[in-house]
Simulated assay, not measured.
Amino acid sequence: MPEKQHESINYIELPAQDMAATEAFYQAVFGWRFEAYGPDYLAFFDKTMDGGFYRSDQCSSTDNGSALVVFYSDDLEATQSKVVYAGGIIVKPLFDFPGGRRFHFSDPNGNELAVWGTAVRT
């Protein structure tokens, strides 16, 4: 588990309809490890933050006002390819913003997340 920092974000939870698809997707794309706590909760373990998925028919997206979870990648194109290969859907293709580039995707549950990286130097 990552080191705990006083008053920092420590854990995140997201909704999921399909726990098996969720585990397969995040394991394939980000290499997360998982532990099920019954049929309705799936905890994940990452390098920088841990969290979990709780069973719900809802999903998290910026269109319905939810917070956006954003990953960092040293190679956006490679990460985007892994997302697509694992069954994710690109909902906002790569675009530039001040300080870098990013894309948004939805996971097998319809949750919207994003991945950013630094701008390509020419």
Results as ranks from 00 to 15, higher is better:
Asp46Arg: 09
Phe25Gln: 14
Val29Cys: 05
Ser81Met: 04
Asn109Thr: 03
Asn10Val: 11
Thr79Gln: 06
Cys59Arg: 09
Lys82Trp: 01
Ile89Arg: 13
Ala21Phe: 10
Arg121Asn: 11
Ser61Phe: 03
Lys4Met: 14
Ala119Asn: 00
Asn111Arg: 07
Arg102Val: 01
Cys59Gly: 03
Pro15Gly: 02
Glu13Asp: 13
Arg33Gly: 12
Lys47Glu: 13
Lys92Arg: 08
Ser60Pro: 05
Glu7Gly: 13
Pro2Asn: 09
Pro2Lys: 14
Ala86Ile: 02
Asp40Gln: 14
Gly65Arg: 09
Asp57Cys: 04
Leu76Asn: 00
Arg102Glu: 08
Pro39Trp: 03
Leu68His: 08
Glu77Cys: 00
Met1Lys: 10
Arg55Cys: 02
Lys4Leu: 15
Gly100Val: 00
Gly110Glu: 11
Tyr41Ile: 03
Ser8Thr: 14
Asn10Ala: 15
Leu42Ile: 02
Asp18Lys: 15
Pro39Leu: 05
Thr122Gln: 11
Gly87Pro: 10
Gln58Tyr: 04
Gly100Trp: 12
Thr62Tyr: 00
Gln5Ser: 11
Glu13Ala: 10
Ser106Ile: 08
Ala24His: 13
Ser81Tyr: 04
Ile12Arg: 11
Gly51Tyr: 09
Leu68Cys: 04
Cys59Glu: 05
Met1Trp: 04
Phe97Asn: 01
Thr79Val: 05
Asp46Trp: 12
Phe97Leu: 09
Val84His: 03
Pro2Arg: 07
Pro93Leu: 03
Arg55Ala: 09
Ala114Cys: 07
Tyr11Met: 15
Tyr85Cys: 06
Ala114Thr: 06
Lys82Ile: 01
Phe97Asp: 02
Arg55Asn: 09
Phe34Pro: 07
Gly117Phe: 03
Lys92Phe: 06
Tyr26Pro: 12
Ala28Gly: 09
Gly99Pro: 08
Leu94Ser: 05
Leu68Met: 08
Glu13Trp: 06
Phe34Cys: 05
Gly88Gln: 03
Gln58Trp: 02
Gly65Thr: 10
Gly100Glu: 05
His6Cys: 03
Val83Tyr: 01
Ile89Ser: 11
Ser81Asp: 13
Glu13Lys: 10
Asn111Ile: 06
Tyr11Ala: 15
Arg121Ser: 12
Asn64Cys: 02
His104Val: 01
